[in-house]
Simulated assay, not measured.
Amino acid sequence: MEQIDLKKIRSLIKESSNTLVFTNRNSFYTNEFDKLLVDSPDPDKNKITFYNDFEINPKIEDISKALCHLDQDNHDLIVGIGGGTPLDFAKAFCYFKEFDKKEVNDLMELVKKPVEITKKTSLALIPTTCGSGSEATEFSVIYYQKKKFSLSVSSLLPDYYLLDGVFIESLPRKILAFTALDSITHATESFWSKNATQKSKEIAIKSLRLSHENLEKAFIHNDKQALNNLLEASNLAGQAINITKTTAVHALSYYLTTYYSIPHGQAVGNLLPYLIEINSNNKDYNEMFSAFDCNTASEYKTKIILLLKNLNIYLDLEKIIDNVEELVDSVNIERLANNPIDLNREQLLSLFTHHHKG
Rank of each mutant, 00 (worst) to 15 (best):
T247I: 10
G238L: 04
A177N: 07
E213F: 12
N26K: 14
E318Q: 15
L256M: 11
S152N: 14
R335K: 15
Y254S: 12
F28Y: 04
D53F: 10
G84K: 03
L37C: 11
L20E: 02
I81G: 02
K245T: 15
K7Q: 11
L327V: 08
D284P: 00
I126V: 10
A187D: 00
Y274P: 06
F28Q: 03
K119T: 01
N338M: 08
C94F: 02
S11K: 14
I313V: 11
S211T: 09
D342A: 03
S253W: 03
L275K: 06
S183P: 01
E325N: 15
L230P: 01
E2T: 13
N105M: 13
T247L: 11
F28C: 08
H250Q: 00
L349D: 00
I341W: 08
I60M: 09
T246M: 01
R173M: 04
S211N: 07
H221D: 12
D88Y: 11
L236E: 04
K309Q: 15
A187P: 00
V249C: 15
L317V: 00
R173I: 05
I305H: 02
L317F: 05
L6W: 10
L315I: 12
S193P: 13
S16M: 04
G84A: 02
V268E: 09
N229L: 04
T137N: 04
D100E: 14
D106A: 03
N281E: 15
D62K: 13
K102P: 10
E334Q: 09
E55G: 13
H186F: 14
G80Q: 07
T85W: 03
I63R: 01
A297R: 04
D44K: 12
N57L: 08
I60K: 00
G165Q: 03
F191D: 12
L256R: 10
K112A: 05
L252Q: 04
I333E: 13
G80T: 12
F149T: 12
Y160H: 12
N74T: 08
Y274Q: 10
S253V: 04
S150R: 08
N214T: 05
D76E: 04
S155Y: 15
G84C: 08
A66C: 05
H186C: 13
L163F: 09
V166Y: 07
T137M: 10
I341P: 02
F167N: 06
Y285Q: 06
S17H: 14
N332S: 10
N344T: 11
Y29R: 06
A240I: 02
S211Y: 01
I168E: 07
F96M: 11
F93T: 02
S40R: 13
A337G: 07
A180N: 10
L230E: 06
T244L: 09
Q3G: 07
F292W: 14
K45M: 03
